[in-house]
């Protein structure tokens, strides 16, 4: 009986453990992994992550619709907070207008690297390093780039 119970428990536990990974959702990273203002907590001494110039490997293969969702959702990319984007309402005004980004004919590689981390080109930029700081996953950045390239 005990064995059965344990087995049942194990099955339940493993079922819990293997909850389908939510696809294309940014994994939330603990704020403790980034610098903070504290004098006593460990995060107070963490330096800012160094700029990374990320190479795009292989085809872009991004999902335009998914990219739009990511760009417009506050808890994910929230690109709209600073940029005008095609189809986005109540955009911000600090960043460059991206409504016709696709017409600029900039390469996927460059766009990907800039969304991943803008600081290798503009060191004092206000734009969060989406890739370096794990705000978005690599696939999510591909999706956003696909959406940008489709905005014409």
């Amino acid at each position: 009986m005990k064995k059965i119970l344990i087995a049942a428990l194990a099955v339940t536990l493993s079922a819990c453990g293997t909850v389908q990974p939510v696809k294309n959702k940014s994994a939330s990273v603990s704020p403790m992994k980034f610098p903070c203002l504290s004098y006593s907590l460990a995060c107070g001494n963490i330096p800012v992550r160094k700029p990374v110039k990320k190479e795009l490997e292989g085809e872009l293969s991004g999902n335009i619709d998914e990219g739009r969702k990511i760009a417009f959702t506050k808890k994910r990319g929230n690109c709209l907070a600073c940029h005008r984007m095609k189809g986005g309402t109540q955009p911000g005004s600090r960043g460059p207008d991206l409504t016709a980004y696709g017409s600029l004919k900039r390469s996927d590689e460059e766009t990907y690297a800039l969304v991943y981390d803008m600081r290798w080109r503009v060191p004092d930029t206000l734009m969060p390093p989406m890739g370096t700081n794990q705000i978005l996953t690599e696939q999510e950045i591909r999706d956003v780039v696909a959406f940008l390239q489709s905005s014409k």
Binding site: P31, P35, C36, V48, C82, G92, R94, L126, Q134
Partner: peptide
């Protein structure tokens, strides 16, 4: 002026000239 957090902002990122100050941050 210290950059903190996942978004890599400082207080100054929103409240100094040339920053987001005076610009729309969504609403």
């Amino acid at each position: 002026y210290k950059r903190v957090g996942q978004l890599n902002f400082a207080c100054a990122s929103c409240h100094t000239p040339g920053s987001i100050m005076g610009n729309r941050l969504r609403g």
